[in-house]
Design a protein around this nucleic acid. Structure first.
Lengths: 170, 170
DNA sequence: GATTGGTACTTGCGTCAGCAACTACTATAG
DNA sequence: CTATAGTAGTTGCTGACGCAAGTACCAATC
């Protein structure tokens, strides 16, 4: 079995590195977001996608797809944000089954404070680690991987159209 | 705020892509591991690290660090695997506070089946997506990021020299 | 306009993870 | 030898997520 592993070490390792990097980054950001802004990483993920959407609102299903949550998980995430007064629901007039989540003025204010902090934190982590070219390369490779994963394998109906609308994508 | 976002779009996006890629990959692998081998992604993560360690065993704390779990989370993860008969604990004779988790013969057998399936799955996902050079580049960049986040510590498996925290006196 | 099928979201329930407190042990100091 | 501090791992509790079932609504057919 050692042979088998050695043979495939590289790919296995690359995937492992991806998971570890994501986990590590998430932990680092979460610590900071929580201590300085009292936001969980999950909440921030929802909020930043709203902040980056036209009108600061998105359909629940869209938001679920973008945040890698199930509809159920998103419902409760938005519930929590609503209790904190950062987000509100608005029933879609054209389709009364559906709902938008949108930032409240309070939510906007929080994000206006939060985003620079977060961006500074990202800069702090990445600045001395990659050259501009490397960073671009990393982004391009990851984008290809992401598009491949969500274009082919999604069970939640994340379509190409949705991917276009994803603010994190472009 | 839109200006602020536009300014920092690239880095914000790269980080977002990393999270989305990891989440997407995890979901894809999890689906397959669960349906074909009845293993959760979390269990598999623990098991493969044991399988790749000398003697198929690791200290609990080491395993926790490698799996991005807290000690508490790992305790219960190992509990579950122990109930399934895949892993067993062994008290470290040199330091009786500590414990090793090690693969049982059943666990070994399961991993002998599971790893080729997983490797094939990884190949399937990555093969037509990146050239060998790109894959190497991605691995190198991610490794740098991971090492930066964790402090250049544990490799995904080997570097057997490091794994002698409490030498097995068997 | 009633039935049937599908979609958008929510809710009940079980599982899993983290935090903080705890136990058991080791190491250092006096 | 005892006291104190520190480390390895476990446990109680709580919060968050996914699955599956449920509700409310839309769309198509007859």
């Amino acid at each position: 079995m050692a042979d088998l592993l050695a043979q495939n070490d590289e790919r296995l390792t690359t995937v492992g590195l991806l998971f570890e990097s994501a986990a590590g980054l998430r932990r680092v950001f979460q610590t900071r977001l929580e201590s300085e802004l009292s936001l969980s990483a999950q909440s921030f993920d929802v909020l930043i996608r709203l902040a980056r959407s036209p009108g600061s609102e998105l359909r629940m299903s869209e938001l679920a797809a973008q945040t890698s949550l199930t509809p159920s998980g998103l419902t409760r995430s938005v519930d929590r944000l609503q209790e904190q007064g950062l987000v509100a629901r608005r029933i879609c007039p054209e389709d009364r089954r559906g709902a938008f989540a949108h930032l409240t003025p309070t939510g906007q204010a929080v994000m206006d404070r939060a985003i620079p902090v977060h961006v500074a934190h990202i800069d702090e982590v990445l600045s001395n680690l990659f050259t501009a070219k490397e960073e671009e390369m990393l982004g391009a490779l990851l984008r290809r991987l992401r598009d491949h994963l969500y274009g082919a394998g999604s069970e939640w109906g994340l379509t190409a159209e949705d991917a276009d609308a994803c603010p994190a994508a472009d």
